[in-house]
Computed example of a mutant assay.
Amino acid sequence: MAEENQFSGELAAFYEATHDHGDVGDESFYRDAATNAAGPVLEGACGTGRLYLEFLRNGVDADGFDISPAMLKILRKKAASEGLTPTVWEADLRSIGADRSYALALVPYNSMCSLRRVDDQLAALEAFHDVLEPGGRLLFDVYVPRYDVVAEAFGEWQDVREVEHEGTLLRGRSRADIANQVTQTYRTEQELLDADGEVIARDEFVLSHLPAQQVELLARQSPFDQWSVRGGFDGEPLADGDGVQVWELRK
């Protein structure tokens, strides 16, 4: 069973409404990488198509997969409304199921952190290595924990925003807390409440902290030949104070 979050229909719609294109800050980085790739592109954990549909809009020969059928349903609906033809399927980061090879593979927005065991993390790297062409690249980003935010906000419900789903106005809230101090994982709970304050949808998922040293060790144990890391999406070296690690592994 995959550790990645699968999302209910309601929570997939909430995710879509709260992750507008342009909000995350990674769009131009991944779009440029995809449009400049010397061959087909694969996006893992493509979700509702925040990035994937942008690739198609720019003429990229791109495939995608996600573990959540509810997320892919939204992606396909959005694509149909724009006259786009997506090639996406339901799959796990550890078992991709692609039927061709790629010049570039992407796993944006901390999705690698959904794999909590070393065996699963290595299995994902091996799976992507297998579907890349010789010289192909894997790009992914993982967060750098901000311990000041962790200490202040963990354990408290945070109201996010309201969203309309199938004619009903819902309020979303989320709460994060430590899942396991030894394994350095945290749990995020998400709830959708109706106008009466009743919870109509709930989900939770656990993510790993993946510090740079651990990712480098994973890279060293993987089949990839080369790897490098940057701090953020501007190409600068990773340094104290950065909030994002951007990794490139080359076959």
Rank of each mutant, 00 (worst) to 15 (best):
S68M: 05
P86W: 00
F233T: 01
G44A: 08
K78N: 14
T188L: 11
E166F: 00
L115P: 02
L53M: 09
P108L: 05
G241K: 12
R76E: 15
R250W: 03
Q190K: 11
G39C: 04
E126A: 14
G167H: 01
D99R: 09
A2S: 14
R220G: 14
A38S: 03
A80Q: 06
D32Q: 14
N5G: 15
V150M: 07
R100C: 03
E126G: 02
V107L: 01
F55C: 02
L218Y: 04
A103Q: 07
E204M: 09
R175E: 07
A2M: 13
A195G: 08
L53Y: 10
D20M: 04
D130N: 14
R100Q: 10
D242I: 00
V60M: 10
L169F: 07
L217A: 14
G39L: 07
A151W: 11
S95R: 11
D92M: 02
M71Y: 08
Q184P: 00
D194T: 03
R31T: 03
D130V: 15
A219W: 00
M71S: 03
G232H: 07
D196S: 15
L207I: 01
D130A: 11
Q184G: 02
M71Q: 09
P69K: 04
Q245D: 06
D225G: 12
T183S: 13
V144L: 03
E248C: 07
R76T: 07
E10D: 15
L217S: 13
P223H: 02
F55G: 06
Y109Q: 15
A2Y: 09
A2W: 12
S208I: 09
E10F: 12
A17E: 05
E248Q: 10
R100Y: 05
G83C: 03
E198K: 05
E189S: 10
L11N: 14
P223I: 09
V118K: 15
L125N: 01
L11S: 14
I200D: 00
L207K: 12
L207T: 06
E216P: 04
W227R: 07
E16I: 11
N180E: 05
S95L: 08
L42R: 06
A127M: 00
V60I: 06
G235Q: 11
P223G: 01
V41G: 01
R161P: 00
D234K: 15
I74G: 13
V244C: 03
G243M: 13
V246D: 09
D99S: 12
R76N: 15
L207N: 07
A98D: 01
Y30D: 09
R94T: 12
R94V: 00
D120C: 06
A123L: 03
A151Q: 12
F29V: 00
D23T: 13
G235R: 13
Q213N: 14
S174F: 04
